[in-house]
Design a protein around this nucleic acid. Structure first.
Length: 673
DNA sequence: GATCCTCGAGTTCT
DNA sequence: CTCGAGGATC
C-alpha cells in the first residue's frame, strides 16, 4: 500500500471515530476545527487520486452527484409492518395469543419507543455500507444509498476487524425535534416555507434526488433490528441484539427495556407516555416484541405481520372544527360516498379539509349535520375521520344530509339494495365519473402501470372527448394531446411512451385492470394462474370459476356477468387489437401441478433456495405455503436451524422434507397423495 | 352456525 | 388504514 493510501485510510478511520463520538455518543473528543481540517485533507487527497475513494469514505456524506430517479430494490427479507393496538384490551389479547401460541404462562418482552420516521434498510457487505433503501411496500423499496450516506449517525463501515459477509440493519430515519425547530427557523429566515412536521421534513430530505440537499438536512437514525445476516452469530434475544448493534456504532433507543408479562407492558406504556413530550424525537407509540428469537420463530406470521410483535399506539390527537358542507363522490363501482368538507384544521401533523363519512347509515348513526362542530382525528394517523358531534353547539340552521335521488355527475337514478350500506349510481359507464375512475384503475401502478396518467389528466381526456374507454388510450395522437391545457410536447410524448410501454404486461395485471367487481389484484392473479390464458377465462362457466381458490358464488357471478356484457367483450377485443400482450402462463395441467391442493410450511434455511424462491416454486406447482404448522399441513420443509415448526411437525406426525425431497416432489409428474 | 382470515374498495395529503 | 363482505374452516 502506498503512503497516500495509508494516509487516506488513517483519515477515514479517524473521521469515522470522531463522527461516532459526536453524532451517536454525543461526546465529541476533538474540536470541530480539527475535524474539518482532517476532512478537507481527505477530500483533497481523493480529488487528486480518485482511486483512493472508497464507498465508506466520510467525504461521501456531503453528497454525491444528483440522479435522475431512484432504482427499485427488492428486500430479500421482506420489511413487515406491525399490527396496532390502541387499548389495554388489545394488549391483553396480544399477550394472551402469544402465551397460548407458546404454551407459556408468562413471557418476556423487549419494549422500545415507536419512532415517527421512515423505515429504511442498510446493507453492509464485508463491513461496508453498500446499499440503503426505503421500506417501500415492504417487498420493494427505493435505493437511497447516496442520501443515507449523508446521515452522520449511520456508520459507513462496521468497527470490526473481521466483519460478516452480509449484515442488513433496519431502523428509522427521523429528524430530532431540536433539529427540526432549527431547520424551520432557518427556512423562515430565508423567507422559505416551513415544514409541517419532523416526519415530513425527514421524508422530503430522504427523497431528494440531489444527495447534497439531503446532506444539508439534519437527519438522524436509530436501529431497531436486522434483516438478512450471513456469517454473524446472532444473540438469542432482541434486547441482546440491540446491544450488539450499539457496539457496532449504531444509535439505538436508550428508552428500551425488557419487561415481564402484560403488567410490565402496560407499565412501560405508561412510563413512556409520561416521558413523551420530553423525548428528543417524535414517537407515536411503543413497540413490544417477544424477546427470545426462538419464541418469535415459533409464533410466526399472520399474512403480513408478525404474531410476536405489536405496536401500542398513543391515542390519536383530536381537533375541533366545523362541517362546512357534505358532498357526494362517485367511485369506480358507482358507489356514492358522502364526504365532509371541513373548515381546515391542523391535526396529527397535517391540515385536514376533507373526511369521508362512508355512507348514509354512518351519518345517521353519528347524527352529523351540516354546520355542526365536530371532533376530527386521523384514524391510524392517516385517514381523517369524524369522531363525534358536539351537540351542545349545534346551530339552529344545521342541515341534515340527504342522499340525492340522482347521481350528481350523470343524473342517473340512485339505487340502494336492502343488503348493502352503499348507494350506487345506476348509470354504469354512461356516467363520466365511473368512466374516469375505471380509467384511473386501469392505469394504476398495480394494473397496467401507465406512468403519469393521473386524476387531472383523466379528467381532461374524458371531458375533452379524447378518451371514452381504455382502448382509446392506445390510439391517442400526439397533436391533440399536446394542445390540452398545461400539457406541452414533451409531456405528451412522455405520456404516449408510458401508454406504449404498458402494452407489455401480464395476464394477471390485465384481468385486474379490467375492473371486474369483486376481482382485485390477488383474485386476478389466481384467475390468470388457474386458466392460463384469456380464451379459457372468457369461456368459463360460473361453476368452472368457482374452482379457482377464493372464488365463491358471488365472485364467480361478478366475473360471469362482466364477461357476458357485450360492451366489455368489445373493450377486451379492442385492447388486444391494440397490441396488449403478455408472456404465456405455464399451462395449468395436472401434470405441471404436482402439489395441487397441498399445504406446505417452510422452516429454517434451505441450502440453495431462498424462502421466497421456494414459495414461488411451490405455488407454481399448485401448492400453498402457510405460515404455521397445523393438522391441515401436508408437508413441512425444513432446512438448517429449523425452529419449533419442525418440532410441531413431529408432534403432529407430519411428514418432514428436506430441500432435495421438495425438489423431487416439484419435479414429479402426478399429484402427490 | 360461528369464527377466522383474506381480499376488495374507498379514502387523505404531500 | 379501515371497514365490510366473501370464502374457508371448525
Amino acid at each position: 500500500m502506498s503512503d497516500l493510501a495509508a494516509r487516506a485510510r488513517t483519515l477515514r478511520e479517524a473521521l469515522a471515530r470522531y463522527n461516532h463520538q459526536y453524532y451517536v455518543l454525543d461526546a465529541p473528543t476533538v474540536p470541530d476545527a480539527q475535524y474539518d481540517a482532517l476532512f478537507r485533507e481527505l477530500q483533497q487527497l481523493e480529488a487528486a487520486h480518485p482511486e483512493l475513494l472508497t464507498p465508506d469514505s466520510p467525504t461521501l456524506r456531503v453528497g454525491a452527484a444528483p440522479r435522475d430517479g431512484f432504482q427499485e430494490v427488492t428486500h430479500r427479507v421482506p420489511m413487515l409492518s406491525l399490527n396496532n393496538g390502541f387499548s389495554e384490551a388489545d394488549i391483553q389479547n396480544f399477550d394472551r395469543r402469544v402465551r397460548e401460541g407458546l404454551g407459556l404462562t408468562e413471557v418476556d418482552y423487549a419494549c422500545e419507543p415507536k419512532f415517527d420516521g421512515l423505515a429504511v434498510s442498510l446493507l453492509y457487505r464485508n463491513g461496508v455500507l453498500v446499499e440503503g433503501s426505503t421500506r417501500g411496500d415492504g417487498e420493494t423499496g427505493e435505493d437511497v444509498t447516496a442520501n443515507l450516506r449523508t446521515i452522520r449517525a449511520i456508520p459507513l463501515r462496521l468497527p470490526l476487524a473481521d466483519p460478516p459477509p452480509v449484515l442488513e440493519v433496519r431502523g428509522e430515519v427521523l429528524m430530532l425535534k431540536q433539529d427540526f425547530a432549527a431547520l424551520n427557523a432557518a427556512q423562515a429566515a430565508r423567507g422559505e416555507k416551513a415544514f409541517v412536521n419532523p416526519r415530513n421534513a425527514a421524508a422530503g430530505a430522504l427523497r431528494q434526488l440531489d444527495p447534497a440537499l439531503t446532506a444539508q438536512r439534519p437527519l438522524s437514525f436509530f436501529a431497531y433490528g436486522v434483516g438478512e445476516v450471513e456469517g454473524l452469530d446472532l444473540p438469542p434475544t432482541h434486547a441482546l441484539l440491540m446491544d450488539v448493534l450499539a457496539r457496532l456504532h449504531f444509535p439505538v433507543a436508550t428508552e428500551r427495556a425488557v419487561v415481564r408479562g402484560v403488567a410490565g407492558l402496560l407499565q412501560y406504556f405508561e412510563r413512556i407516555g409520561q416521558q413523551r413530550a420530553g423525548l428528543c424525537y417524535d414517537i407515536d407509540g411503543v413497540v413490544y416484541k417477544v424477546d427470545a428469537f426462538r419464541l418469535q420463530q415459533a409464533l410466526g406470521f399472520v399474512s403480513r405481520a408478525p404474531r410476536f410483535a405489536i405496536a401500542h399506539k398513543f391515542p390519536a390527537e383530536e381537533a375541533l372544527t366545523e362541517i362546512v358542507d357534505i358532498d357526494v363522490q362517485v367511485g369506480r363501482t358507482g358507489a356514492l360516498t358522502p364526504v365532509a368538507r371541513l373548515k381546515p384544521v391542523f391535526v396529527g401533523g397535517v391540515t385536514v379539509t376533507n373526511a369521508t363519512l362512508h355512507n348514509e347509515d354512518e351519518i345517521r348513526r353519528k347524527d352529523i349535520r351540516i354546520g355542526d362542530q365536530v371532533w376530527v382525528r386521523r384514524a391510524g394517523d392517516v385517514i381523517p375521520e369524524v369522531v363525534a358531534v358536539v351537540l351542545a353547539q349545534r346551530p339552529d340552521n344545521a342541515r341534515q344530509f340527504i342522499m340525492p335521488m340522482r347521481c350528481p355527475v350523470c343524473g342517473s337514478a340512485v339505487t340502494r339494495t336492502a343488503d348493502e350500506a352503499t348507494s350506487r349510481c345506476s348509470g354504469g359507464l354512461f356516467c363520466p365519473a365511473q368512466r374516469k375512475q375505471a380509467l384511473l384503475h386501469f392505469a394504476q401502478r398495480r394494473a397496467m402501470d401507465i406512468d403519469g396518467l393521473g386524476e387531472k389528466l383523466v379528467d381532461q381526456l374524458v371531458d375533452g372527448g379524447l378518451v371514452r374507454a381504455a382502448p382509446d388510450l392506445y390510439t391517442l395522437a400526439l397533436e391533440p394531446l399536446a394542445q390540452l391545457p398545461r400539457m406541452g410536447m414533451k409531456s405528451a410524448q412522455n405520456l404516449l411512451a408510458a401508454i406504449a410501454h404498458s402494452r407489455q404486461t401480464t395476464l394477471g395485471r390485465f384481468i385486474f385492470a379490467l375492473g371486474i367487481r369483486n376481482v382485485g389484484e390477488a383474485t386476478a392473479r389466481d384467475l390468470a394462474r388457474h386458466f392460463g390464458d384469456l380464451p379459457a377465462l372468457l369461456a368459463a362457466t360460473p361453476e368452472a370459476l368457482q374452482a379457482v381458490p377464493d372464488v365463491g358464488p358471488v365472485v364467480a357471478q361478478s366475473i360471469h356477468d362482466f364477461l357476458a356484457e357485450p360492451h366489455n367483450r368489445d373493450v377486451i377485443a379492442r385492447l388486444l387489437e391494440q397490441g396488449i400482450h403478455w408472456p404465456e402462463v405455464q399451462a395449468p395441467t395436472v401434470q405441471a401441478r404436482p402439489l395441487a391442493g397441498l399445504t406446505l410450511v417452510l422452516t429454517g434455511t434451505l441450502p440453495h433456495l431462498s424462502r421466497s424462491e421456494a414459495q414461488v416454486r411451490i405455488e407454481n406447482a399448485g401448492g400453498k405455503v402457510a405460515g404455521s404448522v397445523s393438522k391441515r399441513t401436508h408437508y413441512v420443509v425444513a432446512g438448517a436451524d429449523a425452529g419449533s415448526k419442525l418440532e410441531q411437525a413431529r408432534t403432529l406426525g407430519i411428514q418432514v422434507l428436506d430441500e432435495a425431497q421438495l425438489l423431487s416432489l416439484l419435479n414429479q409428474e402426478t399429484p402427490s397423495p
